[in-house]
Design a protein around this nucleic acid. Structure first.
Length: 491
RNA sequence: CGGGGUGUGGCGCAGUUGGCUAGCGUACUUGCAUGGGGUGCAAGGGGUCGGAAGUUCGAGUCUUCUCACCCCGACCA
């Protein structure tokens, strides 16, 4: 069978869709905007969850679970929050169905109308802060360090698998603190956790920074983010961490008695990453032959494909293959031995290639005779024959090398795609022709950012942490500026 | 939510100004050969043409409505 993928060059978004479908990660469901995450795609999410969950626990957090439904009245308690989410909420209005009078199916029973309508959570701040009120009396009850793994619903107009769906999976951390400084430290700590995860596990370099007022989370005082760059030159926000100040504490009346015996509102944070990370993972590393996965997140890191003609040969090859599998597993490498007789070796090679398995071993009668094994790496598509001696060690090093190579490649791409720009013409030209991150001076006003967005589609992705100060003139308004900020078109 | 497009065996598609038995590729099943990069040959099974209503002697084809998906906008993680 010939090439059945779109290439990045031909049609980037089609290429992305093809990979999601053909690598068996997810598919559209019967429900508009909602996807089915298939086992292979879900396995990646489970790996992400496992790593992040440990990171959260290691920083002192515990998991809990709050309801899917939120009373409508909760939403209006925090003004900017409701404004931010009102337009994309799913609402439960009734609790019963009945048989249709015409005998065809069921209809909503109008007599079963809910006293108070329920919102399907687009995020859980309101229900959680309403709950926290009862958990906090004294500074001794703080901090509260809770995370939940959940699904949320945002009624999006236009959806794309993993990148934007009406329902998605995520984690949301919600913490409460007795001081502002402690809450800010928590916000920054979790940003670092995300950056660590995305760089060291997803092999994707990120910029860490804070959002401009326009891009800030609805209800936050400050939004911190990590921003990554995709191969088409568009930015993707990989994670956010919010310092919520006392906004939600005031809205939900969460007070505590401090050491001085005085009442004060608690200080809050929230932080989250979602299944969108899988979209980032796909777009960051994959090529025209399909998915490319970093070894640390691949559902299985190595696949062994036996080559044989007769059953006796398969038996012989299998002995060796299982021996190698065992040796690899002994040092923590996950291995699939694909001895299905229903598919040909060549077919399997192609399949594992577009599913992004980092390393493929082929083992046949010739190898048995010569004590060798053929090793193919997915990232560079190189094929080499190694001795079976020390094969586990060889593969271990190879996996580490692949992980590093993917990061380095993505890092180089980001560096090559980052441009300093000092005038408006150049700004527009770089965005339209080259894309990527554009570092430019900005006068700090929302109006300017808004106008730039209208003219170029680019937004401020972040103001980097520890950003070097540098006098200059705003690329749009010409007004004085003290630093460059990061502009890009984004997902 | 606006503009454009597409819905025909699992998947990808063809189907003329309405016409008689709805095709092709691939996948699937069986057999034989094959097996170090998506095997070859042969024989088979599978479709109320997205759904509903209408026009007509006759609808995959025309009309209206509806649903879903894709692309481009506005909005958003």
């Amino acid at each position: 069978m010939a090439q059945d993928f779109s290439t990045r060059e031909e049609n980037y978004s089609q290429w992305y869709n093809d990979i999601v479908i053909k690598a068996d990660l997810a598919e559209n469901s019967a429900v508009r905007g909602c996807m089915v995450i298939k086992p292979y795609g879900y396995a990646i999410w489970e790996k992400m969850q496992a790593v992040l969950d440990k990171m959260f626990k290691d920083t002192g957090h515990s998991n809990a679970y709050f309801p899917l439904f939120i009373p409508k009245s909760f939403f209006s308690k925090e003004a900017s929050h409701v404004e931010g989410f009102a337009k994309e909420c799913a609402i439960v209005t009734h609790y019963r169905l009945k048989n249709s009078p015409d005998g065809k199916g069921v209809i909503v029973d109008e007599t079963a109308k809910l006293e108070e309508e329920l919102i399907v959570r687009p995020t859980s701040e309101t229900i959680i802060w309403d709950t926290y009120r009862n958990w906090v009396q004294s500074y001794r009850d703080l901090p509260i360090l809770v995370n939940q793994w959940a699904n949320v619903v945002r009624w999006e107009m236009r959806t794309r698998l993993f990148l934007r769906t009406a329902e998605f999976l995520w984690q949301e951390g919600h913490t409460a603190h007795s001081t502002q400084n402690e809450a800010i430290a928590e916000t920054e700590q979790m940003l670092k956790v995300y950056a660590d995860f995305v760089e060291n596990w997803m092999a994707l370099p990120v910029l860490q920074g804070i959002k401009s007022a326009n891009e800030r989370f609805a209800g936050a005082v400050e939004t911190y983010c990590i921003e990554s760059l995709m191969q088409d030159g568009k930015a993707l926000q990989a994670g956010t961490s919010h310092f919520l100040g006392q906004n939600f504490a005031k809205a939900f009346d969460v007070k505590f008695t401090n050491k001085e015996g005085k009442q004060d509102y608690v200080w809050a944070t929230s932080w989250g990453v979602s299944t969108r990370l899988i979209g980032a993972l796909i777009m960051a590393h994959s090529d025209d032959k399909g998915l490319v996965l970093p070894p640390k997140l691949a559902p299985f890191q190595v696949v062994i494909v036996p080559i044989y003609k007769k059953d006796e040969q398969l038996a012989e090859v299998s002995v060796k293959a299982l021996e190698i599998k065992k040796a690899l597993e002994a040092i923590g490498i996950s291995v699939k031995y694909d001895n299905r007789d229903t598919q040909k070796p060549g077919w399997k090679f192609a399949e594992y290639e577009f599913k992004g398995v980092p390393v493929r071993l082929a083992l046949g009668p010739r190898d048995i005779e010569e004590g060798t094994v053929e090793v193919a790496r997915r990232d560079t598509l190189e094929k080499k024959t190694y001795s079976q001696e020390n094969i586990a060690e060889t593969i271990k090093n190879l996996l580490e090398d692949i992980q590093k190579n993917l990061f380095d490649k993505a890092y180089k791409f980001r560096e090559d795609s980052t441009t300093k720009v000092d005038n408006w013409e150049e700004f527009k030209s770089v965005l339209n022709n080259k894309g990527g991150f554009v570092l430019a001076h900005w006068d700090g006003t929302s109006e300017t950012e808004q106008k730039i967005k209208e003219e170029t589609k680019a937004t401020i992705r972040c103001i980097p942490l520890n950003n070097p100060l540098e006098d200059g003139k705003c690329v749009f308004s010409g007004k004085p500026s003290i630093q460059r900020v990061v502009f890009a078109k984004s997902y």
